[in-house]
Amino acid sequence: MRRPLIGLTAYAQQVQYGGNDLMAGMLPMSYVRAVHATGGRAVLITPDDPGVDVLDSLDGIVFTGGGDIDARHWGARLHPAADVDEVRDRSELMLMHAALERDLPILGVCRGMQLMAVAGGGSLHQHLPDVIGHDRHRAAPGTDPLSADASAYGRHEVVVQTASRAHALLGAHLTVNSFHHQAVDDPGTFTVSGWCPEDRVAEILEDPRRVFALGVQWHPERTGDLRVFEALASAAARRSDLTRPALAA
């Protein structure tokens, strides 16, 4: 019995660790742990290489959090507060289009959910405080707003659309963490199925016509609530026929 192989989009980023300061292919371990804790096997997909052939080897894919998406991908001008990651944009938009075309199970987290909207022909708000007048979806710079002991930062409620896939998975409402300054404006071919009730910021995207395509604006990998990762692993196992055959009655 093989576990479903779940690709995680990763950074190519200058990082400091130990005494080193170098360009690394890398991702926070929280994503890896979330995949392994829910029955998948994580591999990281580095963005330097814009081919999509790697998707043939995967059973599911997570588009992870990170920097901003360049507004030119939906035909707008770049906002001064945007901090784009062009290398990831180029490679991840190709991967997203190809994953949608193959109907590969997809989970989008934060930037990953925004990427779903952009790939689906939608658009983003480039700087939320301009739209909703407050910065509560993002904590103060220099802090780690998602760490377990920083519960005061950015937490808010999400209400979930009745009869949506997200509702079946997450129920009518939940409390989430939050660290973003951009947000989905037009979800394109996707459906918004969850909102922050205070400001109507889109928190969940889905496409019920697909095997599994779910985006969340928060960071479930930094919490104990891994239901969306479980759902991805299950969908990936089903699609690749990795589920244990039922015993004959």
Partner: peptide, 28 residues
């Protein structure tokens, strides 16, 4: 981000595989 537990590899490995005609994936 400060001292976040991170899975990483010097990017030189990825580039070496790519330049040699392979598709690199990282195995945490």
């Amino acid at each position: 981000w400060h001292r976040l537990p991170t899975t990483l590899v010097p990017h030189a490995y990825v580039e070496a595989v790519t330049l040699a005609g392979g598709r690199a994936v990282l195995l945490p």
